[in-house]
């Protein structure tokens, strides 16, 4: 089909990124990441079921710097998707549509995800007794 010289509607990159649109696409991206992360959970559970040897290699891989990077990203994705998911459930129930409210809850979600992610990792390292 020839479109000739008809005017086109503006493309996505024309628009200035806003808290609403950025958090919306981040919800999708973290959702996809978490779905892929279920493979990691499956692998960990199967390793535990397979025995001490398999579990030790799984723990070693997850404890390597690359494994920790993945786990850290997974933790942030989870807390972000969780907090923003609660925001979505509030919208579904009919609350929080004022522009100011949308912005405030959006930034609250970001702050909650960051604080919970770092908090969980600090507690995790504390549980390991500061070892490595």
């Amino acid at each position: 089909m020839s479109t000739g010289s008809r005017p086109l509607s503006p493309h996505l990159q024309i628009y200035k990124p806003q808290i609403t649109s950025v958090l919306s696409i981040l919800h999708r991206i973290t959702g996809i990441a978490l779905a892929i992360g279920t493979l990691m959970l499956m692998w960990w559970l199967i390793a535990a079921a397979a025995g001490p040897h398999a579990f030790a290699s799984a723990q070693a891989a997850l404890g390597s710097w690359l494994g920790r990077l993945f786990l850290f990203g997974w933790t942030f994705a989870l807390f972000y998707h969780l907090a923003n998911g609660i925001r979505h459930l509030c919208w579904d129930a009919g609350f929080g549509f004022q522009l100011r409210t949308v912005s405030v809850t959006g930034w609250t979600v970001v702050a909650a995800a960051v604080v919970l992610t770092f908090g969980a990792w600090m507690l995790g390292y504390a549980a390991m007794g500061g070892a490595s």
Partner: peptide, 29 residues
């Protein structure tokens, strides 16, 4: 939506448990 609502408490419990299991050996896990 129903699975989302169910996942809120389940995931909070799961992450808290993983934190307490950090560095656990096979026996503990």
């Amino acid at each position: 939506r129903l699975t989302a609502a169910a996942l809120v408490p389940l995931l909070l419990w799961f992450v808290a448990s993983l934190v307490s299991l950090a560095g656990a050996d096979h026996k503990a896990a």
